[in-house]
Write a protein that binds this DNA or RNA. Structure first.
Lengths: 93, 93
DNA sequence: AAAGTAGGTCACAAGGTCAG
DNA sequence: CTGACCTTGTGACCTACTTT
């Protein structure tokens, strides 16, 4: 990083309000939410909220409820392509 | 760019349908497919399609499948001098 | 001169890694 | 599983060069 550079020009993570490190999967997020979203793609359906589905995601509690965290990712617009998942169901050559 | 100039007189990229920026390696392509083809030449053999070898290349998903993107480059006629023919005889997908 | 392309550059994001 | 860090490919922009 150059001297005098602004450390976090991307503002806050749109998911948990931590510091965003860049635009990831279409949304400014921190490294944590970026990695979480990537890992969640193949298993997102299985998440379930135990607190009523209205959890407020913060840097401190973001690992408390995967369901609400992942829901916020989707609601905010994070996406890996979109059509890829249909394609994944087809066979390779 | 002069005032009144047409931004993309070359039409659409023959590979991914993004906007073409000129004729590159013999084919009207965007900057992305131009750079991808240039980088691919020394390693194109190693690409492999995991989706059946029939991927439709679009600006959004063009980085999903290097094999099909590169195959389309070759099929569409992109070439760097004469080395193209050697590559065509090797495996792809 | 103008027009146009090959190849270089490098900030940026995707995906991988692995200690915790 | 998490997330700070790492590696690698991408593509918008740039320069150098050719052609007319």
């Amino acid at each position: 990083m150059p001297v005098g550079a602004i450390p976090f020009p991307f503002g806050d993570c749109r998911i948990c309000n931590d510091k965003a490190t860049g635009v990831h999967y279409g949304v400014a997020t921190c490294e944590g939410c970026k990695g979480f979203f990537r890992r969640s793609i193949p298993k997102g359906e299985k998440y379930k909220c135990f607190f009523g589905g209205q959890c407020v995601i913060s840097p401190q509690n973001r690992n408390r409820c995967k369901a609400c965290r992942f829901k916020k990712c989707l609601d905010t617009g994070m996406a890996i392509d979109g059509m890829i998942f249909q394609i994944l169901h087809s066979k390779s050559c």
